[in-house]
Design a binder for these strands. Structure first.
Lengths: 113, 113
DNA sequence: CCGGAGGTTCGAAGGTTCTCGTACCTCGTC
DNA sequence: GACGAGGTACGAGAACCTTCGAACCTCCGG
């Protein structure tokens, strides 16, 4: 696990389990977050910038789950925290998964275009 | 929901939730079963033909989860039950999902070929 | 007709998940 | 220095998941 200044510990990609990933993506709140990250530009994003209708402590919980499932990297910058998708690493280990899930979720409520 | 002779009730594909699907696939036993079905020939298969190291009642539970998540169709034939992947229907609603998950799982322990 | 294989239902135990509130920490700003 | 925004740690509650065994059902084969 890396331990850069402010970087919260994350598992190596090799140690990440598909079951954990699917569980992480099964939660609507977490999936919404991942979705936004997937069709973002890949740069860091403030954790506080996600409009989740849940308590602060619950968010902390969800960030931990996403981190431990190998989906995101999280940096603690004192007064705020930031997340970044582990895009390339993740894609190398679970090819196509993010795109497929993102594609399915994005297709929501737009059956025939 | 359909109610053919022996066909256990299943949700219409439209009513199936991605979260439920991902949860269903998150379990190793269920994922193993789906995997076998995916690279099978699409024909019906006896429920008893899956080598799951769990109790009978636990199997029943897992089959229900898979059914209710929209992944399989199950037929009760008196002395035995049979399952079939809802391949095309599922593919139409969640394009690519099964292939991606199957691909990832199959890639296990064969990094460079 | 009896036994066994295959299944379901029920209830229960043990673990995990999601949620929250409270207390506490750390910065930047006034 | 005090305040507020953003976060974490901890504890607790409710709900759910996986698992099992026991009791029961339904057929097919001998």
């Amino acid at each position: 696990m890396s331990s850069m200044p402010g970087e919260l510990p994350i598992p190596e990609m090799a140690a990440v389990d598909l079951g954990a990933v699917l569980s992480a993506l099964a939660d609507p709140h977490r999936r919404a977050v991942v979705l936004e990250l997937v069709d973002g530009d890949g740069t860091e994003r403030a954790c506080s910038s996600f409009p989740l209708p849940i308590a602060k402590s619950t968010r902390t919980h969800h960030w931990r789950v996403l981190r431990e499932a190998g989906l995101v990297r999280q940096r603690d910058a004192g007064n705020g925290t930031f997340v970044r998708l582990r895009r390339d690493e993740f894609e190398a280990k679970f090819p196509g998964l993010l795109d497929v899930v993102a594609g399915i979720s994005t297709a929501r409520s737009a059956p025939v275009r």
